[in-house]
Simulated scan of single mutants.
Amino acid sequence: MKIAIGSDHAGFAYKEKIKGFLKSLGHEVIDCGTGSPEPVDYPDYVRPPAVLVAEGKADRGIVLGGSGNGEAMVANKVRGVRCAYCFNEESVRLGRAHNDANVISIGERLIPEETALKIVRIFLDTPFEGGRHIPRIRKMMAGELV
């Protein structure tokens, strides 16, 4: 799987850990930055992975920041992206199974590294259930303005 990943300075450490984890699982990683823990504006590094997913140049995306809130908001502004804000195993499982999330957002300051890696694994392994969720996804996506 090809995974696009991006973070601001507050998510940089987890981004680097997750990148290594993804590569160890045999995935191709597209790192959209940032490249250090020096302060940056998160939209500059979160929008590119979301765009890659929306354009079909990446299969999934992962965005990170201090809380993950702003990062999820930016990613969800990209037409075709369904970014789930994930803070535990159940939030990511439901984001994939019920909402067909193609991007996830993680807050480095809010969860332990071990939990973040579990979230990533579940994101990759959980299939979309389809069925009763498909009409809901269609309604959600039909509501996009741009």
Rank of each mutant, 00 (worst) to 15 (best):
D44I: 08
D44R: 13
D44Q: 12
Y45Q: 02
Y45N: 02
V46N: 00
R47D: 10
P48V: 03
P49E: 05
P49D: 05
P49N: 01
P49K: 00
A50Q: 01
A50V: 13
A50D: 09
A50I: 12
V51C: 09
L52H: 06
L52D: 01
L52M: 13
V53K: 02
V53F: 03
V53L: 01
V53H: 06
A54P: 10
A54V: 13
A54L: 03
A54K: 06
E55S: 07
G56Q: 06
K57V: 09
K57H: 04
A58F: 07
D59C: 05
D59I: 12
R60H: 10
R60T: 03
R60W: 07
R60D: 02
R60I: 06
G61A: 03
G61L: 02
G61H: 06
I62K: 02
I62D: 11
V63P: 03
L64C: 04
G65S: 09
G65Y: 00
G66A: 05
G66P: 04
G66Y: 03
S67C: 09
G68W: 03
G68D: 05
G68F: 05
N69Q: 14
G70H: 06
G70W: 05
G70I: 08
G70P: 07
E71W: 09
E71V: 11
A72L: 03
A72Q: 12
A72D: 02
M73Y: 12
M73P: 08
V74I: 15
V74N: 04
V74E: 06
V74T: 14
A75E: 08
N76M: 04
N76W: 10
K77M: 10
V78M: 01
V78H: 05
R79Q: 13
G80C: 09
G80S: 10
V81Q: 05
V81E: 09
V81I: 15
V81D: 10
V81K: 01
R82G: 03
R82F: 09
R82C: 07
R82N: 04
R82Q: 03
C83D: 07
C83T: 02
C83M: 04
C83R: 00
C83V: 04
A84R: 11
A84Y: 12
A84D: 10
Y85S: 14
C86N: 04
C86M: 06
C86I: 10
F87H: 15
N88A: 02
E90L: 15
S91E: 11
S91T: 15
S91G: 04
S91Q: 04
S91P: 04
V92H: 09
V92W: 11
V92S: 05
V92P: 12
R93A: 11
L94R: 14
L94S: 07
L94F: 14
G95F: 05
R96N: 09
H98C: 04
H98T: 11
N99R: 03
N99P: 11
D100E: 13
D100Y: 11
A101K: 07
A101Y: 12
N102S: 07
N102A: 05
N102P: 13
V103A: 01
V103Q: 04
V103H: 02
V103F: 06
I104Q: 06
I104W: 09
S105E: 00
I106N: 01
G107K: 09
G107V: 09
E108G: 13
E108V: 07
E108C: 11
R109K: 15
R109L: 02
I111V: 15
P112L: 00
P112W: 00
E113Q: 13
E113W: 08
E114Y: 07
T115C: 02
T115I: 15
A116Q: 08
